[in-house]
Nucleic acid binder design. Structure first.
Length: 148
DNA sequence: AACGTACACTTAT
DNA sequence: ATAAGTGTACGTT
């Protein structure tokens, strides 16, 4: 199938998505828009709905390296919650630092919710900007609380 | 192929 | 506050 691309709004940012069917190849945050459509799940998520991207699959979880297993673990952390780099590291028998690197190179944020991974003593980073990470966490917490 | 460096971390001084 | 330990990727020999 042909690979599609497009973007949708998230706050001051746009999220660009390259996908084909339920395969997600890449998602990047950008200040500028990009013509085309994105899967409905992204639109729902950006609108503040609780969205688990359950039906989507990221190419990254299939990586044959340790990154693949890290991404699979990260996918399991639930909407509105956060875990530490160290906890993920423990599950796949590697060091927290490696988890950090895997997050930095994550080709598909949101589908693989790297924004829910924080440091034990600090917030951790996010590319292109930690502000995004923070607003994602805040947004998720808010919608989760609203559900109660 | 080897080597050095850079990290979105953690734990112990 | 600082240093040492850590694993992987990546650029440069």
């Amino acid at each position: 199938m042909e690979v599609m691309s497009g973007s949708c709004r998230f706050g001051l940012w746009f999220v660009h998505v390259w996908w084909s069917g339920d395969q997600i190849f890449q998602v990047v945050f950008s200040k500028s828009t990009l013509n085309g459509t994105v899967p409905a799940a992204f639109i729902r998520y950006c609108a503040g709905k609780e969205e688990h991207f359950q039906s989507m699959e990221s190419v990254a979880t299939g990586y044959p390296t340790i990154y693949g297993r890290i991404y699979q673990e990260v996918r399991k952390v639930p909407y509105g919650e956060t875990v530490t780099y160290g906890e993920i590291a423990g599950k796949v028998a590697t060091s927290p630092r490696v988890v950090g690197q895997a997050m930095r190179r994550n080709p598909t944020p949101l589908v693989i919710p790297c924004h829910r991974i924080v440091g034990k003593h600090n917030f951790g980073g996010f590319t292109p900007s930690p502000e995004i990470k923070e607003s994602l966490i805040v947004m998720e917490k808010k919608t989760k609380d609203r559900r109660k």
